[in-house]
Amino acid sequence: MIQRHPHDDLLLSYAAGSLDEGSSLIVATHLTFCAKCRMDVLVAETVGGALLDAIAPVEMGDAADVMDRLDEPAAVPSRATKETGFPRTLDPYLPDTTVAWRWFGPGLHYAELLKKGGTKVGLLRCAPGAEVPLHSHRGEELTLVLAGNYHDGESNFSYGDVQCADDTLQHRPVAHADIGCTVLIMNKGNLRPKSVVARLFVRILGM
């Protein structure tokens, strides 16, 4: 049972269509696992539908042009799926075969999926008991657990859970001692390392 969900303002912007691609990737992947949040997104989309109903209509050409095209065959989007073992939301961002993991610290491997306008999304694989050095954030950070679980000193995060962090949070996540964890992680702006070791990590990671 998923305990931790993306904040409602993210679900709302995702439904409105204004959420950035990196955050949307975390939200869409969480929605793959979470019926509760799918319902919240539907509520927000219902708001969008109601706003559409209520807007004052503007002058629009008649239906003739569209009527002429009704017999056109519909474009069928190609949907080649990959066998990566990850949720399909990640398919467009993953290589065809194996994920190119980069070592960046004891027990830690990272694979970048998306880098756009200061936002980065990647997979982080943590061996059992591996620790991400203490850091805080200059911008938002969203972490979605895809396998295993981790503890950040205050709370435990397991399969499907999302942790939303901002510049007020300082944490040192530790992967589960027996099963480790794999997370999808999005961050905006650089991490703020709190130690020499952490600074080294950030430099290697290019965050």
């Binding site: 995702y14 409105a16 269509g17 959420l19 691609e21 949307s24 990737l25 939200v27 869409a28 992947t29 929605l31 793959t32 799918r38 539907l42 989309e45 219902t46 969008g48 539908g49 109601a50 706003l51 559409l52 109903d53 949720p87 399909r88 939301t89 467009p92």
Partner: peptide, 30 residues
Amino acid sequence: ASASTWIFTIVRNLRIDALRRHRPAFDPTD
């Protein structure tokens, strides 16, 4: 969904495509 909600989502997605942006969406057949 109601017709309005459904059409809202079609319009939202078309607009995002037109702006050449990407909006990942979950796949119910995943």
